[in-house]
Each structure stands twice: as structure tokens, then as C-alpha cells.
Amino acid sequence: MTLTLTVPPGAKVRVRITNENGETTEIEVEPGETVTITLPAGSTVRVEVEVVDPDGRKRTETFTLKP
């Protein structure tokens, strides 16, 4: 399973991925970048995406991906 994120110009994104064992991976994606994350097959993962807009506003979306 893959997750692809494209960050709009001016925004910053931090992604936290937590697996079933509670292990967390965190990455930051710079403005204008596209990143593809390969998620472990057969695992349920929690993905938290934090977006910081150019004006400093933050918003966070959290979702769970199941196999």
C-alpha cells in the first residue's frame, strides 16, 4: 500500500506514521515536494498529517489505514 502526498507551495507538512507495535516514523515534506510512502503490507497504520500554511495556521488530519 502506498500513500502519496503533494505539498502545495508555501505549506509545510509533517507526517507521523504509527504501526500496530506503536513504532512511529516521522517525516517532514518541504513546500512543492511530492513524496510517496510505502506502508507495510497487511498492517494497520495510523497516519497523522500536520499542515502549516504560509500564514502560520496549523491543521491536523488523522486517519487509519487497514489492509
Rank of each mutant, 00 (worst) to 15 (best):
T6D: 14
N19K: 08
K12S: 12
K58E: 00
F63G: 15
V51A: 01
T34A: 11
E20V: 04
E61P: 01
D53R: 01
E20G: 05
V13A: 06
L5H: 02
G56E: 00
F63E: 15
E26V: 04
V35G: 04
M1R: 03
V13S: 05
V49P: 00
V52M: 05
M1H: 07
V45A: 06
P31R: 11
T36V: 12
G10T: 02
T34P: 12
I17H: 11
R14S: 11
T25N: 04
A41Y: 13
G22W: 10
I17T: 12
E50I: 04
E30V: 13
A41G: 11
P9I: 08
D53C: 15
F63Y: 05
M1K: 02
T38R: 06
K58M: 04
T62D: 05
R59K: 02
V29C: 09
K66F: 15
T34W: 14
E26Q: 06
T2V: 07
E61Q: 08
M1N: 03
R57D: 01
L5I: 06
D53Y: 15
T24L: 05
P54K: 10
I17S: 11
L3V: 05
K58Q: 02
R59D: 00
D53S: 03
K12L: 07
L3I: 04
T24H: 08
V7I: 08
K58N: 01
E61M: 15
T18F: 13
V15T: 09
P8I: 13
L65M: 14
P31V: 14
G56N: 00
S43V: 11
L3M: 04
E23C: 11
V35E: 03
L65S: 00
V7N: 02
E30Q: 05
R16M: 04
E33R: 08
P8K: 11
R14C: 08
L39W: 09
I37F: 13
T2Y: 11
P8Q: 10
G10S: 08
V35H: 13
T64W: 15
E28M: 03
K66A: 14
V51M: 04
V47M: 02
T6G: 13
R59S: 03
V49C: 04
G22M: 10
T25F: 10
G42V: 14
G32H: 12
N19H: 05
R14Q: 07
G56F: 00
T64R: 00
E50P: 00
A41K: 10
T18P: 08
V51W: 15
R46T: 09
A11G: 07
R46S: 03
T38L: 11
T44K: 02
G22A: 07
E26R: 08
E48M: 04
L39Y: 09
P67C: 15
E30W: 04
L65F: 15
P8G: 13
R14Y: 10
L65G: 00
E61R: 09
G22S: 09
K58T: 09
E48Q: 04
T2F: 13
D55W: 10
E33A: 11
D53W: 14
V7Y: 15
D55I: 00
N21Q: 10
N19L: 07
T24V: 05
P67H: 14
E48L: 03
V29D: 15
L65K: 00
V35T: 07
E30T: 12
T44I: 10
V35Q: 03
T34N: 11
G56K: 00
V13T: 11
F63Q: 12
E50H: 03
V7L: 13
R59W: 15
V45Y: 14
P67R: 02
V45C: 05
T62A: 03
L3C: 11
I37T: 11
I37W: 14
R46V: 13
R57G: 02
D55Q: 03
T34R: 13
T38E: 06
P54D: 03
V15G: 04
E26K: 06
V13W: 02
V7G: 01
L39G: 14
N19Y: 12
R46D: 03
T25S: 05
L39V: 04
T4Q: 05
P31S: 06
K12R: 05
R16H: 03
E23H: 07
P67A: 14
R16S: 04
K58P: 01
A11Y: 03
G10Q: 11
T44D: 04
D53P: 00
F63R: 12
K66V: 15
G42M: 12
I37G: 09
P40K: 13
R46F: 10
E33Q: 08
F63M: 04
V15F: 05
T18V: 13
A11E: 01
R46M: 11
A41V: 06
G10M: 11
T25I: 10
N21D: 11
E30S: 05
E48V: 05
I17D: 02
N19Q: 10
T44G: 03
V7K: 03
T34H: 10
R59I: 06
E33V: 11
G32K: 13
M1V: 05
P8V: 14
R57H: 03
V52C: 05
K12Q: 13
E23L: 06
P8L: 12
P9N: 07
P31H: 06
T62Y: 14
F63S: 11
I17F: 14
V15L: 09
K58R: 06
D53N: 01
K66T: 15
G56W: 00
V51S: 03
T34F: 13
E26T: 05
E50Y: 01
N21A: 08
G32P: 12
R57I: 04
V15M: 12
R16D: 03
E61F: 15
G42H: 11
E61W: 15
R14E: 08
E50D: 04
G22L: 06
V49G: 00
T6P: 13
A11W: 08
P31C: 14
G10R: 09
V13E: 01
V15Y: 08
K66L: 14
E48S: 04
P31Q: 07
G22R: 07
A41F: 12
I17G: 12
A11R: 01
P40A: 09
G22F: 08
E26P: 13
R57Q: 07
V7C: 07
T62H: 06
A41R: 12
M1G: 05
R16Q: 03
P40D: 09
G22H: 10
M1S: 03
S43Y: 11
T24E: 07
T60G: 00
V29F: 11
V51L: 02
D55N: 03
K12N: 10
R59C: 14
T24C: 11
R59A: 01
G42K: 08
G56V: 00
T38M: 08
F63N: 04
P8Y: 14
V29E: 14
P9Y: 08
V13G: 04
L3E: 01
I27E: 10
V51K: 01
T2G: 06
V13R: 01
E28A: 08
V52G: 00
T24I: 06
V45T: 06
T2P: 03
P9V: 06
S43W: 09
T64A: 01
P8M: 13
E48C: 04
T62S: 08
T2Q: 04
E28T: 04
T64V: 13
G22Y: 09
R46G: 02
T38N: 07
P54C: 12
E61V: 15
T60Q: 01
T18C: 10
T25L: 12
L65H: 01
